[in-house]
């Protein structure tokens, strides 16, 4: 599919994630500075920036893996605070894929996918397995369902991790550098799955340096540096016509 076809995809006005003046510190280190961001349903946002700029921290705040100290984060209409019940509801609605896959090594692929549907959503095992099979087929790894993660390649593991998140039927997916730990020949199989997902209208926030992927699926690219969103644009403009010097420098280094 071409870049135009992807960007033409409908996005509605329903706000899925909203950040208002979010600030976060690690001790004295000011890692997120006055972040304002609105993500509407079906949007595919790529977040890039130099290492240590706070991009992972930003998406990890959205499902409360990290706590923010100032400002509001509203996910699917729920404001994130210390209330565990709200955090739980948000986490059920947000899927997350990690750089290091973080599959559960003592469980088979199938068990990895069924665990949360059974114990969080209280689905019967049969139903959970059927759902898991559906998503494993979608990421083309159904034939490995009985294997343990340690017996799969990195690319296969990451596809299982995506399927595991999808099994919870999330409306938003967060990707934290999903291809950075992969060997080059495996990056494409993971990106293909993510492209498919984007075409199906999933709301996605993706921290990545895969600029080809950004051009294909994103409808917005955020560039972060030193805890701030420096620049925000639709992908072609962002790559062809960067505004700030820091963006230009960054793009010259990675392209």
């Amino acid at each position: 599919m071409t870049a135009e076809a992807a960007t033409q995809q409908t996005t509605s006005d329903e706000v899925m994630v909203e950040l208002r003046d979010v600030n976060k510190w690690y001790g004295d280190f000011h890692v997120l500075k006055n972040i304002n961001l609105k993500v509407t349903k079906g949007e595919r946002i790529i977040i890039c920036g130099p290492s240590g700029c706070g991009k992972s921290t930003l998406i990890r705040c959205m499902n409360r893996l990290e706590e923010h100290q100032q400002g509001d984060i509203i996910v699917s209409g729920i404001t994130l605070d210390d209330d565990l019940k709200r955090i739980d509801r948000v986490r059920r609605d947000i899927g997350m894929v990690f750089q290091q896959f973080n599959l559960f090594p003592h469980l088979t692929v199938m068990e990895n996918c069924c665990l949360a549907p059974i114990w969080v959503q209280k689905k019967p095992r049969k139903e959970a397995e059927a759902i898991a099979m559906k998503y494993l087929e979608r990421v083309q790894i159904a034939d490995q369902a009985k294997k343990f993660p340690g017996q799969l390649s990195g690319g296969q593991q990451q596809r299982v991790a995506i399927a595991r998140s999808l099994c919870m039927n999330p409306s938003i997916m967060l990707f934290d550098e999903p291809t950075s730990a992969l060997d080059p020949e495996m990056i494409k199989e993971v990106l293909d799955v993510m492209v498919d997902l984007a075409h199906e209208g999933m709301t996605m926030l993706c921290v990545t340096h895969e600029m080809g992927f950004a051009k294909t699926v994103a409808n917005r690219v955020l560039f972060m540096d030193a805890g701030e969103i420096i620049e925000e644009n639709e992908p072609n403009e962002f790559f062809d016509n960067p505004q700030s010097d820091r963006t230009k420098l960054f793009l010259s280094q990675i392209l």
Binding site: R91, F104, R164, S165, M168
Partner: peptide
């Protein structure tokens, strides 16, 4: 983190 992100 993976377990938390899944809502466990």
């Amino acid at each position: 983190e993976a377990a938390e992100a899944l809502g466990l």
